[in-house]
């Protein structure tokens, strides 16, 4: 059985518009600047602040406070191509075997 139930917030999320505006800006910056080596300056700052402020106002009904605690506990994965990082499950190159 398929439940069509979505959390009350999804379509009508109070932050949906601000979120979309931020995503538009971010996606453009990511493809056109960040990936091309222009990473010395942060962009989309206003869009980010507007969206983030909205989120913090609705932190409780979105259970976001719990996310923030978890985030601190876990930290970030390791990036880069350091092949001997023990947290990487795949050490050999893809073409092996």
């Amino acid at each position: 059985m398929k439940e069509k139930r979505k959390p009350s917030s999804s379509a009508t999320s109070p932050c949906a518009k601000l979120r979309a505006a931020y995503h538009d800006c971010f996606n453009r910056w990511y493809s056109e600047k960040f990936l091309k080596g222009q990473w010395e300056k942060e962009e989309c700052v206003t869009e980010w602040q507007n969206y983030r402020n909205c989120l913090s106002q609705h932190l409780e009904d979105k259970h976001l406070s719990r996310f923030l605690e978890a985030e601190e506990a876990f930290g970030y994965p390791s990036a880069g191509r350091d092949r001997d990082d023990p947290s990487r499950p795949f050490k050999s190159s893809t073409s092996s075997q």
């Binding site: 439940e3 139930r5 959390p7 960040f34 990936l35 080596g37 990473w39 259970h63 719990r66 996310f67 978890a70 985030e71 876990f74 930290g75 970030y76 994965p77 390791s78 990036a79 880069g80 191509r81």
Partner: peptide, 26 residues
């Protein structure tokens, strides 16, 4: 019937690598 997860990611543009880890928090 819902579960909350956190996704942490790092994109290294110089090394061309993107790493993501997702875990459930609820």
């Amino acid at each position: 019937d819902i579960c909350h997860c956190v996704e942490s990611s790092v994109v290294d543009a110089r090394a061309k690598s993107m790493a993501l880890t997702t875990r459930n928090v609820s």
